[in-house]
């Protein structure tokens, strides 16, 4: 379980990215974080594993306050938090297997990681995870030889290799086409369900969030302005998060896409008949 208490972040430039955010994410819950760009979504998830240092508040994972930890303790706690990135953030010039094994870096001593001599159990698990995301035959390929969707699957396998107690997911589908986006979201939700993992997912695509998330939190200018189930995300709620115009703009774009997808589905069905 993750508890945020009064989390705040003010950047050196004086911009307040987060103002007094308090949230509780119970075990197994997938929480979508929506909001216009600049609302502080990215800052929020980076404050949890302290890639960005929060300026105030508490981050409680279990009963450990991550904000107070020293460097070495922080590294030990970061192992418990898997992170998945927008641009995949794989080490492009390493093999897929090395990328997955890099999820074990927090557990192995330097010499093991340097010589690529991981414990047999780690390697077995890495293979198992690659199999789970459907990439076992690509293990020896270099990461830059894969497509976007495949790379994001490697990113997921790397995060899971950490044996995390929490997943932080930063715009997992922003660089992917709509179809692959849905596949990746489905994979993520399945995996979280399998392991009873809580996850915080930054997502700019509201319909996608409504389709896959159990709970949605809306941020605006660093403040939580909405917290509820996807069904409760009404027109008024979205207006509160995004402001009038942006939200209508977004809905129009999505309606087009839905229509196109429905159309495609009908045609496929016709062909199958």
């Amino acid at each position: 379980m993750l508890i945020l208490e009064g989390l705040s972040k003010t950047y050196k430039t004086g911009d307040a990215a987060l103002r007094d955010v308090s949230l509780t994410v119970p075990k197994g819950q997938i929480m979508g974080l929506i909001g216009p760009s600049g609302a502080g979504k990215s800052t929020l998830i980076r404050c949890i594993n302290r890639l960005v240092e929060p300026t105030g508040g508490k981050v409680l994972l279990g009963d450990m306050d991550l904000v107070r930890l020293g460097k070495a303790d922080l590294r030990r706690q970061r192992r418990r938090i898997g992170m998945i990135f927008q641009e995949y953030a794989l080490v492009e010039r390493l093999t897929v297997m090395e990328n997955v094994l890099s999820g074990r870096l927090g557990y192995v001593p330097f010499w093991r990681s340097f010589l690529r001599k991981y414990p047999p159990a780690d390697i077995q698990r890495a293979y198992q995870l690659l199999d789970r995301v459907g990439l076992i035959e690509h293990a020896d390929k270099r990461a830059d030889a894969l497509s976007g969707g495949q790379r994001q699957r490697v990113g997921i396998a790397r995060a899971l290799a950490q044996d995390p107690e929490l997943l932080l997911v930063d715009e997992p589908t922003a660089s992917l086409d709509p179809k692959t986006s849905r596949q990746i979201m489905r994979l993520l939700t399945e995996i979280c369900a399998e392991r009873d993992l809580p996850a915080i997912v930054n997502i700019h695509d509201v319909p996608l969030a409504q389709q896959f998330m159990q709970r949605i939190v809306g941020l605006r200018a660093g403040r939580v302005v909405f917290d509820g189930t996807p069904d409760q995300l009404t027109h008024d709620a979205l207006t509160a998060i995004y402001g009038e115009e942006d939200w209508n703009e977004m809905r129009r774009g999505d309606e087009e896409q839905t229509r196109a997808e429905l159309d495609a589905r009908d045609r496929m069905a016709a062909l199958a008949r």
């Binding site: 890639l51 992170m83 641009e87 794989l90 080490v91 870096l105 927090g106 790397r158």
Partner: peptide
């Protein structure tokens, strides 16, 4: 971002 991702795994 590649460096950030490695940091996020708890690497030294």
């Amino acid at each position: 971002t590649q460096i950030e991702a490695i940091e996020a795994t708890g690497a030294s």
